[in-house]
């Protein structure tokens, strides 16, 4: 589909983060190297509290409450700032705005001219064309997360950071959201934090496991994502990933 929702025009760079991070002299990671490949999905797993969200916040340029010493480099050497879209577990929709206006939140906040047509196209793309005039409170959790996805797409940023965006959804909705997000984010550089081995097995071009000692690369099936949840190689990857996670000590 020749929709402006996919493939931002410019050549996409990958990102490399290198360095140390500590909270009030408590080291969270040291000599860590995170590589996020261009135009692919990198899935990041690991025990709670190991620092996955902190990594995402560093990449997004957000306050972490700690000290980072190191570098965040893009392959094209332009800063990441202004090129990142972020989506978390909470939908973070403004309850006073309707769906249409929530999708246009970025333009509203920047005071730039809102592209109403594109917003409607994206809302239709996530299957909510009949709901654009409703407020978030009138939608289910899955629908709200689709609004958040449309809002992230509206920003049209080459880098997309996803912090457990589907964690709160029921299994069926989650599988549908994975498919929708994978399709709509095609061509973008995606870093997905997840606790769900099956999600990583379906979506990851690359799978990384974060431990207190750094990042470990986990093998991915040869078949490219998105993989059917019931394909033998997806299931095998899921099981291998699960065993790997179970063998890790807690953070």
């Amino acid at each position: 589909m020749a929709l402006s929702t996919s493939s931002p025009a410019s050549g996409l760079p990958g990102v490399t983060l290198q360095g140390d991070f500590s909270h009030q002299h408590q080291v969270l990671f040291r000599d860590l190297e995170l590589r996020v490949e261009a135009a692919e999905w990198t899935c990041l797993l690991g025990p709670s509290g190991v620092g996955k969200s902190t990594l995402l916040r560093l990449l997004a340029g957000l306050e972490t409450g700690g000290a980072f010493t190191g570098t965040i480099d893009t392959d094209d050497h332009f800063p990441l700032q202004g090129r990142v879209a972020y989506m978390g577990q909470a939908d973070l929709l403004a309850p006073w705005l309707n769906i249409h206006d929530n999708v246009l939140l970025g333009a509203r906040l920047r005071g730039s001219a809102p592209d109403h047509g594109r917003a409607e196209t994206l809302i239709a793309r996530v299957g909510l064309a009949d709901h654009t005039a409703k407020r978030p409170a009138a939608l289910s959790g899955g629908m709200r997360q689709r609004v958040a996805l449309a809002r992230a797409l509206m920003e049209d940023r080459p880098f997309v950071l996803l912090d457990e965006p589907f964690a709160a959804l029921d299994a069926k909705t989650r599988a549908e959201m994975q498919e929708l997000a994978f399709e709509l984010l095609a061509g973008r550089t995606v870093l997905l934090v997840t606790h769900d081995p099956s999600e990583a097995a379906r979506l990851g071009h690359h799978i990384l496991i974060m431990t207190a000692n750094g990042l470990n690369r986990h093998p991915t099936p040869s078949r490219p994502p998105i993989r059917p949840y019931d394909a033998p190689e997806t299931l095998a990857a899921q099981i291998a990933l699960m065993s790997q996670l179970r063998s890790q000590p807690d953070a």
Binding site: R57, A60, G61, L62, E63, G82, V84, A85, Y86, G88, A90, L92, A94, W96, L105, G106, R108, L109, R110, G111, E155
Partner: peptide
């Protein structure tokens, strides 16, 4: 979370105050 989102969207302090904090 909403304030973080505004920051990644490139919102100024003033517009964050007027368009997010104020209505909230």
């Amino acid at each position: 979370g909403l304030l973080d989102l505004a920051q990644t969207m490139g919102a100024s302090e003033t517009s964050t105050l007027l368009r997010l904090r104020l209505p909230a």
